[in-house]
Amino acid sequence: MMIKTTYKAIFTAVAMAIGLVLLQSCEKEITVDLPAPDAKIVVEGYIFEGERPYVILSKNAGYFDPIDSAAIANIFIFDAIVTVSDGTNTDTLTFQPAAESAYGFAYVKQNPTVTGQAGKNYNLTVSAIGQTVTSTTRIIPMVPLDSSKWVEYEDYDSLGYVYVHFTDPGIDERGYRVFSRRVSANPERNEPLFRPNFYSSNRFYKGQPIEFGISRARQFSDQFSEDNPDPDLRSYRLGDTAQVRICTMDLPNYSFYNSLSNSDNSGNPFSAPGNVQSNIEGGLGCWGGYCVNQFQIICYP
């Protein structure tokens, strides 16, 4: 995390430096004629330890295609043939309402024979829009937590974060991804879904103890509130109950999210035009397996 921040900081600083120097720069809107991209299947698939797999499928669109609710509805694929196999059993998933999906629907199976188990590989096959794409992911076994606690921010009264400590087993190369949600009897403060906080690679702490803080994860509904400075949105408040999931990732899963977070450049000359590193053969997106270490903490010092 930190190293990545360093590099981002360097490029930002260099860009800023050029910006400062070139006070004269000016810009204008232009028309560019972009070719339509080849149609591709976008896979957003998850298999958590102990849970059934769920997959959301969509299509890519032309860069300047309109983005309105009709277009977004059109982007999803409803009629795909989706199978998940753990090498022994194979389930065919169908499109239906699914509580675990952020969209409220996904390809799932009601009585699954394939569920997430640590140490296993899972194959995904999707056939849609005249194409078939495949992927494999592995659920890397998790390690127990050492300790966790709630820590209050120095500058903000009653606001804080969850502090977690554990030791990487040092047996393999892996990523970690942390999800969290707030649970409350008050329906306004109760969050239905685990949402991602951050991801990290054990490259920098392989076999070593690691500690990190978890602030409140942005829910799907507030993820466009990036500019909202309200610290409450980024904190767990005194008395909240937080549920935290620390999950393992295999490297292709990690690489997808790592390159995804770096792909948010919009064509400035200080960054390389980079496509996200997908683990979907022939398609876009990611099929990821996660081993889960879940715990609940009530936020008191």
């Binding site: 560019v32 972009l34 070719p35 339509a36 991209p37 591709k40 976008v42 957003e44 969509s58 299509k59 890519n60 669109a61 032309g62 860069y63 295609d65 983005i67 977004i72 982007i75 952020a102 991602p196 799907f220 993820q223 995804l260 792909s263 919009s266 064509g267 035009p273 980079g274 496509n275 996200v276 876009l284 997106g285 990611c286």
Partner: peptide
């Protein structure tokens, strides 16, 4: 230069898809 020619939605976010290298 290489420009994004496509987009897709992933976990509620819009992700750019770059077109052919140095095609623009």
């Amino acid at each position: 230069l290489t420009l994004q020619t496509g987009r897709y939605i992933y976990d509620g976010n819009i992700v750019n898809e770059f077109g052919p290298r140095n095609d623009f």
